[in-house]
Design a binder for these strands. Structure first.
Length: 431
RNA sequence: UCCUGAGUAGCUCAAUCGGCAGAGCAUCCGGCUGUUAACCGGAGGGUUGUAGGUUCAAGUCCUACCUCAGGAGCCA
């Protein structure tokens, strides 16, 4: 009995007989020869079936099976220069696990809605497959970066009584008779993690009930949030910069095959090395005004502004020290400029927008208390958060990175919906 | 929520000034021993998003609604 192998390792089995368990991706046939494009989740290989060299039963089965039929194929691995992977399979036998008729996603074009309704099947298509493999590898690279540097993973809760950025953008639920929300950010809990472990991070799903309809937003997205005790805004920019550059450079190596099948231009990614330019909010405003934009000091940047600023550099850009009134309650004020806070955003190049938002948090208990009141937030649910300032408070800082935006940038996808297996968006909860 | 655009065969689209509902792919039948979204010949396949209106005549014009897409605001 020949050994069962995955398609990705076929190159190591040239001139041997092997068994492949997979699915029919596409088929081309002529009167006496048929080409089966086979996939098994690890790759694609072309199986060649010659009439007369296999049992009539096998030939008849080959003629009958449709796209995505599940098959177990036995054959001889042959090196062939005509094959994209360098090998093909001379089929000697085939067992049909299920013959499929009418698989909806054909090798021709389809519309967005049609494909999104069949997302559970669309995952099998080569481009979607490649994007999600990149996502999987990027998740590992992100975790590895922090584990290798002594961080502790402190999982933040998903159900929370807190509304950090206002209740209008929260998904609410009933928690045994009490209101609860799906978390918008793990940050507040990560601050507790930083005080306990020095360097902590979380990486999990977060939720925003924003009625936004753009290519850069999902209602459920994954966020990576490191938080570091005794760190300042400048430390956080150093860390975020080294993190992004390291992950991108490793991804170029780890995801080489996927980037090839996605036809991603590697040149812009190869330029992503530290240091990244750091632009003060004041400078960013000046830059926009000089570019002829009608932008007033004190406003927040829109997507167009971000792109305009990042186009000035060919690298990710930090914008830092924002006006206090456009940022959340927990941001530490700039000692030299009381109208500013020590926040920083990292804008990705090529129009991929805000990749990271972070900064230094308020550590003074009195200041935090007054900021909570100024933002009209109830004191009671934040008592545990205040405790972090009552018992051994220290300056600390951290950031949050949206995983899907990183995946979109690395893979060159224009829309976030393709960067997560089952996207949740305005108007889409299925499949 | 606002702005713009689209909804016609299973899928992707066409249909000129309001005048016979069309193509490619998919499906089915036939052909082909090196195909790479294979190709060649043939066939079947339609309540034109929904409801109403104008007209001799509506896929096409008008009104309302529904759905989707692109963008804005907001954010990661």
């Amino acid at each position: 009995m020949p050994t069962c192998v995955y398609i990705e390792s076929l190159v190591d089995h040239v001139d041997s007989d092997v068994v492949i368990k997979g699915w029919l991706y596409n088929k081309r046939s002529s009167g006496k020869i048929a080409f089966l494009e086979l996939r098994d989740g690890t790759g694609l290989v072309q199986g060649v079936v010659v009439r007369g060299k296999v049992d009539d039963e096998v030939w008849n089965a080959v003629e009958e099976i449709g796209q995505e039929s599940s098959v177990i194929v036995t054959g001889r691995v042959k090196a062939d220069a005509r094959a994209p992977s360098g090998v093909e399979l001379g089929v000697s036998a085939m067992e049909v696990v299920q013959a499929v008729d009418g698989y909806p996603i054909t090798p021709k074009e389809h519309g967005t809605e049609f494909l999104m309704d069949r997302r559970h099947l669309w995952l099998r298509s080569s481009q979607q497959h490649a994007v999600l493999r990149v996502r999987s590898k990027l998740e590992k690279l992100c975790r590895d970066y922090f584990y290798e540097r002594g961080y502790t993973l402190v999982d933040s809760p998903i159900l929370t009584p807190l509304s950090v950025e206002g209740t209008t953008t929260l998904f609410s639920t009933d928690y045994f008779g009490r209101p609860a929300y799906l978390t918008q950010s793990g940050q507040l809990y990560q601050e507790a993690g930083a005080m306990a472990f020095g360097k902590a991070f979380c990486f999990g799903p977060t939720f925003r009930a924003e009625k936004s309809k753009t290519r850069r937003h999902l209602t459920e997205f994954w966020m990576l949030e490191p938080e570091i005790a005794y760190a300042t805004i400048d430390d956080v920019m150093d860390i975020a910069e080294d993190f992004v550059a390291t992950v991108i450079q490793r991804a170029l190596v780890e995801c080489d095959a996927e980037l090839t099948s996605l036809d991603r231009d590697r040149a812009p990614l190869e330029q992503i090395t530290a240091p990244f330019p750091r632009v003060h909010y004041d400078e960013a405003v000046k830059l926009l005004q000089e570019a002829g934009e009608d932008f007033a000091w004190g406003s927040d940047f829109g997507a167009g502004h971000e792109t305009l600023i990042s186009e000035h550099f060919g690298k990710p850009v930090f914008i830092n020290r924002f006006p206090t009134k456009i940022k959340p309650f927990y941001m530490e004020p700039d000692a030299e400029r009381p109208d500013l806070v020590l926040g920083c955003d990292l804008i990705a190049p090529e129009g991929y927008g805000e990749l990271i938002g972070g900064g230094q948090r308020i550590h003074d208990p009195a200041l935090l208390e007054s900021r909570l009141a100024e933002h009209g937030l109830p004191a009671e649910p934040y008592q545990w958060y205040m405790d972090l300032r009552r018992y051994g408070t220290v300056p600390h800082a951290g950031f949050g990175m949206g995983l899907e935006r990183l995946v979109a940038w690395v893979t060159g996808r224009p829309h976030l919906r393709e960067t997560i297996p089952f996207p949740r968006m305005l108007g889409r909860l299925e499949p």
